[in-house]
Simulated scan of single mutants.
Amino acid sequence: MIKSGLTIFADENMPALEPLFGHLGSLIRLPGRSMTPADLKQADILLVRSVTQVGEELLRDSKVKFVGTATIGTDHIDQNWLQQAGVGFASAPGCNAEAVVDYVLSVCFHLAGEQGFDLRDKTVGVVGEGNVGGRLVRRLRALGVQVLVCDPSKAREQGAKVVNSVELQTLLAQADIISLHTPLTHDGADPTWHLLGADQLAGLKADTILINTARGPVIDNQALLQIARQRRDLTLILDVWEQEPVVDPELAALCRIATPHIAGYSLDGKIRGSWMLYQAVSQWLGTEPEVSLKSVLPASAFSEVKLGQGADTLPLMQLLYDPHRDDRALRATLHLSPDERAKAFDQLRKSYPERREFATLSLSGDISSAQRTELSAVGFSLNMDR
């Protein structure tokens, strides 16, 4: 096993690599979407995000012995080939789960204000109760929201322990808000590619809000476009797209909020992903991790707010994240040619402004018990002794 002098190639958009990996050898950053076999011939370790397809085609001529992806999803990694080739592998499950939940709740609170509803009066359907979906379910239930869950594999494993577990068609027919949190799989017992096709989308009830922060092909985007043309009562929130990085401008135009695959793009989540890979590499090398997550997380620009009675949740959310900002940025690119649109999509991700998770904001002040319950459930840190 190599102990030092490693050559580490990494996606240029991954943060905190120098303090985490710099002491292990040389660190070379490359654009994740355009990595080639020639680029990686001298690599010992490869660190990527979701835009890099990793398998035999990319690595067969390299000496890579370890691959890490700083993402929850792994559909871009050919794990079978890595295993057969004797290449170590690690992902970062849960690294940006809090950020995705922040995004979904931000969207829901914004829509509640725009459409004049109380989230507690809605039934929310969560498809996939893994790292992200499970957190969303817990926060929604803490808010007092009725939640339906569809996760067939978890239902088989845990049976009645999965509260309000329903079949997909039941969820689609009964939920007012549907949020997708599945991995992208093409086979197995529960494939999710085009999980929502024309037949499933036709079963949505009137005035449904449909949110996808999972993977673009979980929804048949062509079928969704046809449905959206016909049913203007649907509210679409899409952060992921079937043909990324090329976004269908007509489908985006029919969305209430359209964003460039950034739901999980909090600084906290991205650094947490890098740090989780650092831990995995340390284990692979047989060494003890020396760098803590806290030491590489910078202080937040908004770390503490003192509240008074009647404090509203949405403005506090907006201190840290406003989904309409990302929506405006993506819409400004939709007039471009497909090639230029793809480049702009990646540039929006590469130059994404710093965004912190709700948990980094500490709230204090004299507020009601109901306010405390809501703010805590949303994800803020409460310090009511001050």
Rank of each mutant, 00 (worst) to 15 (best):
F109E: 06
V87L: 02
R232K: 14
F345R: 01
N383A: 14
S106M: 05
D121N: 11
P15F: 13
L285E: 11
P183Y: 15
A263M: 05
S303G: 15
V281A: 10
E290P: 03
L196Q: 13
N212Y: 10
Y321F: 15
D207A: 00
W241H: 00
C255T: 03
S292C: 09
E57S: 15
A43V: 05
V147W: 07
C150H: 10
L238K: 01
L172A: 00
L17D: 05
L171W: 01
V101K: 13
V147T: 11
L277T: 01
V291D: 12
G365D: 09
E129W: 06
Q230P: 02
R372D: 13
R256T: 11
S295A: 06
D190H: 12
A377R: 00
Q200D: 06
N131T: 12
V67D: 08
L285Q: 01
G203E: 00
Q309Y: 09
A223K: 06
G94V: 08
I257T: 08
R229S: 08
I227K: 09
A112V: 12
H194L: 03
A16D: 03
G264F: 12
A142R: 01
R355N: 02
E374P: 06
A332H: 06
K122Q: 01
G197I: 08
L375K: 00
S179G: 15
D176M: 02
T333K: 07
T259C: 07
Q200K: 14
P152F: 01
S91L: 09
T182Q: 13
E357V: 04
L277E: 04
Q243L: 11
H110R: 14
A377E: 02
D176Q: 10
Q283Y: 07
V291R: 04
H186R: 15
R33S: 04
G144I: 08
G188V: 03
G273R: 07
E250D: 13
R215C: 07
R231M: 01
L111E: 13
A332S: 13
D118G: 04
F66T: 02
L82P: 13
L361N: 02
R215H: 04
G128H: 05
V247E: 00
V127T: 13
S300G: 05
Y278G: 04
T213K: 09
F89I: 03
G5D: 08
D327G: 06
G264C: 10
A99M: 10
K3Q: 10
